[in-house]
Computed example of a mutant assay.
Amino acid sequence: MKRVDMRTKAYAPDIIELNRSGDLCFEINQTKPRTEKMRQLINELLLTPLDATSNIASPMDIDRGKMLHIGKHVFINHHLTAMAIDNITIEDNVMIGPDVSLLTANHDFSDHYVLEAAPILIKRNAWIGAKAVILPGITVGENAVVAGGAVVTKNVPANTVVGGNPARILKELDEK
């Protein structure tokens, strides 16, 4: 887990990225959906072209667009919240429901100006249900399903369904 002190000069580039991403999310959220202009704004937010087979529905709140990496054939429904002080990687063929939160950081309990961050990895063909919350350092395995409303505090094995708060394995799926 990486530690980031928000009071240091080393945090200054993060503030620039927060402002850049916030301004772009505002503009995206005010733009007519499914237009070329929206696609251009999303590409500017991510600092890389979103594959033509992938889509992110607005509105969205992504605090560090350059830390979000999205594969092919990915669909992310509206109201994604991505707090990405560390990387968030979404591999190919992933579906993410509405109102999902991907959170790569938490505050240190003894010093709230220190962030403890770890990356999130959502592997190929995973499905994240509506209003799920994925916490720092989590890997969601291939073909896994995170049930709606789940709070994921531990890695999700491949080919499983997890749900609840905290999420636990509800079912094992046949391997694909």
Rank of each mutant, 00 (worst) to 15 (best):
R3W: 08
V4I: 15
V4Q: 07
D5F: 02
T8I: 00
K9M: 07
K9S: 11
K9V: 00
A10K: 15
A10M: 05
Y11Q: 12
A12F: 10
A12Y: 11
P13D: 10
P13M: 07
D14W: 14
L18W: 01
L18F: 12
L18H: 01
N19I: 15
N19Y: 01
R20W: 11
S21F: 06
G22W: 03
D23V: 13
C25G: 09
C25Y: 02
E27T: 08
E27I: 04
I28N: 01
N29F: 03
Q30A: 14
K32Y: 04
P33G: 07
P33K: 04
P33S: 04
T35P: 04
E36K: 10
K37C: 02
R39F: 01
R39S: 04
Q40C: 02
L41K: 03
L41H: 05
I42W: 05
N43H: 09
E44T: 14
L46P: 14
L47I: 02
P49M: 00
N55E: 13
A57I: 00
M60L: 15
M60K: 07
I62E: 08
D63I: 12
G65T: 07
G65W: 01
G65D: 05
M67L: 02
H69C: 03
G71Y: 01
K72M: 08
V74T: 11
F75D: 13
F75G: 15
I76V: 15
N77S: 12
H78F: 10
H78Q: 14
L80V: 10
L80G: 08
M83N: 10
M83I: 15
I85T: 13
D86K: 06
N87V: 13
T89E: 01
E91A: 12
N93P: 03
V94H: 08
M95E: 13
M95N: 14
I96E: 10
G97K: 09
G97D: 06
G97Q: 10
P98L: 00
D99P: 00
D99R: 14
L103E: 05
T104L: 06
N106I: 14
N106R: 13
D111C: 06
H112N: 12
Y113E: 15
L115I: 04
A117Q: 09
A117F: 02
I120M: 09
L121I: 15
L121V: 15
L121C: 08
I122A: 07
R124H: 15
N125Q: 10
A126N: 03
W127L: 06
W127H: 11
W127D: 07
I128E: 06
A130G: 13
V133W: 04
V133M: 12
I134L: 09
L135M: 13
P136M: 11
P136I: 14
T139N: 04
T139D: 04
G141Q: 03
G141H: 04
E142I: 11
V146L: 04
V146N: 06
G148L: 05
G149F: 01
G149N: 07
A150F: 00
A150I: 05
V152K: 05
V152L: 08
T153W: 05
T153E: 03
N155T: 11
V156C: 07
P157E: 05
P157C: 13
P157T: 10
A158L: 07
V161M: 07
V161W: 01
V162Y: 01
G163K: 05
N165V: 15
N165L: 02
R168K: 15
L170T: 06
L170Y: 01
K171E: 13
E172R: 13
D174W: 00
E175N: 14
